[in-house]
Design a protein around this nucleic acid. Structure first.
Lengths: 296, 296
DNA sequence: AAACTGTCTATTGTAGATAAAATAACAAAC
DNA sequence: GTTTGTTATTTTATCTACAATAGACAGTTT
């Protein structure tokens, strides 16, 4: 019915951890900015905390009465926004379930399948269409263009163009630019991961995303930064579904990143380009290997 | 309410011209493919043509009874799809009306203004957001980032990257590729226009679009081709609203295109790059000159 | 007077309903 | 074998309605 209150539920859960940590809560306004929600939602959260007798709320005083119990939290599946649910559901269908290129996509069927209204599905498809995996036939269905070898090649072609340019731009940043500090942090995180690669290799996906985004940001070009969304989503789901040899693959990638970082720090354009190209080549290989070959 | 029957009206109008040209009409199926609509719509059109006594429709025979009169056509404003109406209306607001960067965009207000439901406005904004001119704050308004100098620079940076690559790719196409024929046609059209530049310069915008699209298509990269949509829309509205010196500007651009075409025909990468760069540089200049400078 | 809260209003996100258009099927006619 | 008539079904495009959420203003507390 109408809007889901996932914003409330998610913020409520996060607020529970806050209560436990600090034994009390700041002003409504401050709480709102910390949680990233409006005062209306903050007050709804406080109401509930009071009703559950977790805090005593009277105007400005919000003291903890008892630490939150696990049962106080809303279950995780109720806290993800509808668009996330649709995205996951859709990606599962087109990546996992043998989805043939050329297949038709039906808004109504998708909506019924996921258990939502058509409006949200439609909006998702419109947003998603910019990733080049589906295409609309006006007044008619959507067509799945498929996660094919061609798609991967076109994607990586642009990625390489953009990243080479961004990397060159990064190396040319002034000495005192905050990005250098971020890069140093990034390097530390990589060394950390490499030291414990056997237990940590699964977290590489996230680190990878953050590292490349840092590089791309230095371009200060919204189109380059926005394009990175496509890379992110493709690699994100790709990692989830292709786990063959991921330990070795990730270990190698971490090392490549470290070389790449070292090259950036020299600020020597030739070295940067070389390290960047090397890493991009192996990233492309990895992606291509995982694409289902057409059984022609 | 519900769906507008603009598809029907637009197809009906186009069908009227067909009737006049050929004094009769082909099979329903064939008519459907020519007009790009389904048989359902074709039959609705035929019904109306019959009711207006423009054709005698009996099974396979569809002979013209009288040539269509201007009054038979649906007025043009009833044939444009809702999304086109919204687009025009929106672009007028943000380009013409002094729209400051940072301004909030309100779905409800826009919808009321245009006289449509919010759903269509919302979908438009989502589609439009990929152009990088607006940005969504979830659960809240959209923010206008504005048609600023920065925007133009970021846009042209990508454009230049893509076009240089596409041009190089074009020059490397095999001798017998159909694109070479299209290029020859394009050249003829340009010469034609140049010969009558005083009366024809207003049509340059369309020719420009077609020419660059031809070049970009040779990349066979969906992301490059899709990106060209942004260029198209920006230049389209830009031309409409900035007409200062357009005769000279367009004349020069036609000549640059001809140089560019000549360079492509030599297939010499160095020449292609040079001609391409020259044209892109002046296109960028033109665009930048037209941007309102912040009155800081 | 600055920060906070109580109250109220406006807007967004989503569901559900409906007309237009697409799609399908098949027998009859050319 | 292609085209039409017929009829039915499915799907999209769009509107309207409503709960969740954001945001504004005025009054209260420190």
């Amino acid at each position: 019915m109408a809007k889901q209150n996932t914003v409330f539920k998610d913020a409520f859960n996060r607020c529970l951890t806050l209560v436990a940590e600090s034994e009390g809560l700041p002003s409504e306004l401050e709480l709102g900015t910390t949680l990233g929600v409006s005062r209306t939602t903050v007050r709804a959260i406080l109401e509930r905390l009071k009703a559950l007798e977790i805090i005593a709320w009277d105007k400005r005083s919000k003291a903890m009465l008892r630490p939150p119990r696990p049962s106080d939290f809303f279950p995780a599946e109720e806290t993800s926004s509808l668009s996330d649910i649709i995205e996951r559901s859709f990606m599962r269908r087109i990546l996992a379930g043998g989805a043939e290129p050329g297949m038709q996509i039906n808004e109504l069927e998708l909506a019924r399948d996921i258990g939502t209204g058509t409006t949200s599905v439609r909006e998702f498809l419109i947003r998603f269409s910019r990733f080049g995996l589906i295409e609309k036939r006006p007044n008619s269905h959507w067509v799945l263009k498929g996660f094919t070898r061609e798609f991967a090649l076109e994607l990586t072609e642009i990625r390489e163009m953009f990243e080479l340019r961004s990397a060159a731009g990064f190396a040319a940043l002034p000495e005192d630019h905050p990005a250098w500090r971020d890069l140093a942090e990034m390097e530390a995180l990589h060394r950390d991961m490499l030291a414990n690669i056997d237990t940590r290799y699964r977290d590489f996906s996230e680190l990878d995303e953050r590292f490349h985004l840092l590089v791309h940001r230095s371009s200060s070009n919204r189109f380059i930064i926005d394009f990175y969304d496509i890379i992110t989503i493709v690699f994100h789901y790709h990692y989830q579904w292709n786990k063959a040899n991921d330990r070795e693959r990730n270990a190698r990638a971490v090392e490549e990143h470290l070389d790449y970082i070292a090259a950036l720090k020299t600020r020597d354009p030739a070295k940067v380009e070389q390290a960047c190209r090397r890493h991009l080549r192996s990233a492309r290989e990895t992606l291509l290997q995982s694409i289902q070959q057409p059984d022609a």
